[in-house]
Amino acid sequence: ELIWEQYTVTLQKDSKRGFGIAVSGGRDNPHFENGETSIVISDVLPGGPADGLLQENDRVVMVNGTPMEDVLHSFAVQQLRKSGKVAAIVVKRPRK
């Protein structure tokens, strides 16, 4: 059984690379294997702001206090874009 651990990460936006993450998932883009609608970190740019803080497959729980459960992919992207220079991101990942 999976035990999820929650992490809060504060990312500083890089002028060229943004937050250095890509997200997939969302209500309109469920996971191809299990139908899960979570917003998921799909890519972490090496050397970017999120490197060492976020991991691929982290589930995004909140962005700047806005819940990311059962939202559209575009909504999640929009929340990240409009967060200015700093984003507080809450993620969960299975305990190893």
Results as ranks from 00 to 15, higher is better:
D28M: 06
V71C: 09
E33M: 14
D28E: 10
E69F: 07
Q79M: 14
Q6G: 03
Q79L: 10
L2W: 09
E36H: 05
F32Y: 13
Q6D: 15
L72I: 11
T37R: 14
F32I: 09
V60A: 02
R81W: 13
V63T: 02
A87V: 11
A76L: 03
V61I: 12
P46K: 11
N29Y: 06
I39S: 01
E69W: 07
G47I: 00
D14Y: 03
I3T: 15
T37S: 14
K13M: 09
L45C: 09
P94Q: 11
G65H: 07
V63I: 15
G52W: 02
P49E: 01
G65T: 12
G35N: 15
Q79F: 11
P46N: 13
G48V: 05
I39F: 01
E1N: 15
R27T: 14
K82P: 04
V71P: 02
I39P: 02
R95Y: 13
E69Y: 05
G48P: 00
I21R: 00
R81E: 15
V44T: 02
P46M: 08
K92S: 11
F32V: 11
S42E: 07
G65N: 04
S15H: 07
A22S: 15
N34H: 07
I89F: 11
G35I: 04
D70E: 12
L53D: 03
F19E: 00
A76F: 13
V40Y: 12
V44W: 08
V9Q: 04
L11F: 01
N29H: 15
L11E: 04
R17A: 08
S15D: 15
A22P: 00
E5R: 07
A76N: 01
V86N: 11
A50V: 00
A50G: 08
V86M: 14
R59K: 10
G47T: 05
K92C: 06
G52S: 06
V9T: 10
D28Q: 06
M68I: 06
A88N: 12
V71Y: 02
G20F: 00
R59I: 15
T8Q: 12
T37I: 04
T10H: 14
F32P: 15
N34M: 10
G35H: 07
G25V: 03
I21G: 01
I21L: 13
R81Q: 15
L45Y: 12
V44A: 01
E1T: 01
A87I: 11
R59Y: 05
V91G: 02
N29D: 03
V77I: 13
F19W: 07
I3K: 10
G18A: 08
G26T: 03
I39C: 04
M68D: 00
P49F: 01
Q78E: 14
L2Y: 15
P49G: 01
L2E: 10
T37P: 07
G65Y: 04
R59N: 04
V77M: 11
I41S: 01
V63W: 15
V63D: 02
R59E: 04
I3N: 10
G20H: 00
Q78T: 15
E33N: 06
F19V: 02
G48D: 04
A87K: 02
P67F: 11
Q6K: 15
E36N: 14
P94S: 14
T10W: 07
L45R: 05
R27C: 13
V61L: 13
G52R: 05
I21P: 03
I89E: 02
E5F: 05
E56Y: 13
A50T: 01
I89V: 12
I89L: 11
S74K: 09
T10F: 10
I39R: 02
N34K: 15
W4L: 12
V77Q: 09
Q6M: 14
D43F: 14
G48H: 03
K16R: 12
G20I: 04
P46H: 05
N34P: 06
G18W: 08
A22H: 14
K13W: 08
G18Q: 11
G47D: 07
G65K: 08
S38I: 02
R27G: 03
R59G: 00
I21M: 13
D58N: 01
N57Y: 10
K16F: 09
R95G: 13
L2N: 15
M62F: 09
M68S: 02
T8P: 07
T66H: 09
G52D: 06
R27F: 12
G48I: 00
Q79H: 13
K92H: 08
M62L: 07
Q55E: 15
S15P: 14
M68L: 12
A87H: 02
D70W: 03
Q6R: 12
I89C: 04
N29F: 03
K96L: 07
D43N: 12
K82H: 12
H73Y: 09
A87W: 00
S15Q: 15
G52Q: 06
V9D: 08
G48C: 04
E33H: 11
D51H: 10
Q6T: 10
I89W: 02
A88S: 11
W4G: 05
P30W: 05
I41F: 04
G84P: 12
E33K: 14
V23A: 01
H73I: 11
E33W: 07
T37Y: 08
L72Y: 12
G48L: 03
S38Q: 06
L54M: 12
K85Y: 10
P30G: 07
Q78Y: 13
R27D: 04
L80S: 01
G52F: 00
G35Q: 10
I39Y: 00
N29V: 07
S42R: 08
E69L: 09
K96C: 12
G65D: 06
L53H: 08
L45V: 14
G18R: 06
V23M: 12
R95P: 08
V61Q: 08
K82M: 12
V23H: 00
I89H: 00
I89M: 06
S83N: 07
R27P: 04
D28V: 03
V77P: 03
R59L: 07
Y7Q: 12
F32D: 06
N57Q: 13
H73C: 09
R27S: 14
P94D: 06
D28R: 05
L53I: 13
G65I: 02
V91S: 00
K13C: 06
M68G: 02
Y7M: 12
K92P: 00
L54C: 04
V40D: 03
A50R: 04
V44G: 04
V86E: 10
R27L: 11
M62G: 14
E1Y: 12
W4H: 08
Q12T: 15
Q55V: 06
R93A: 02
K96M: 06
W4P: 04
Q55S: 08
D58I: 03
V60T: 02
D28T: 06
P94L: 12
E5K: 06
V40A: 07
W4T: 06
P49D: 04
V71I: 04
G18Y: 05
E36F: 04
P67T: 08
F75L: 04
L45Q: 08
K16E: 13
T66W: 05
T8H: 09
R95H: 08
H73A: 11
P46Y: 04
K85M: 13
D58H: 00
K16N: 13
T37W: 02
Q79R: 09
W4V: 04
G26M: 03
S42F: 04
H31A: 15
R93F: 00
P30D: 03
S24V: 15
Q12W: 05
I21N: 03
G84Y: 07
Q79E: 11
H73T: 11
V9M: 07
P67K: 13
V77F: 03
K13H: 11
L53N: 08
E5Q: 07
V61Y: 06
S38K: 05
F75I: 05
R81A: 14
D43Y: 13
V9N: 02
I3V: 08
V23R: 01
D51T: 07
D43Q: 12
G84E: 15
E1D: 14
V44N: 03
F75G: 02
R95E: 13
G52I: 02
M68H: 01
V63H: 02
H31F: 06
A50H: 02
G26L: 01
T8K: 09
A22W: 13
D43L: 11
G18F: 06
G26A: 02
V86I: 10
R59F: 03
A22Y: 06
S83V: 10
I21E: 00
D28H: 07
V9G: 01
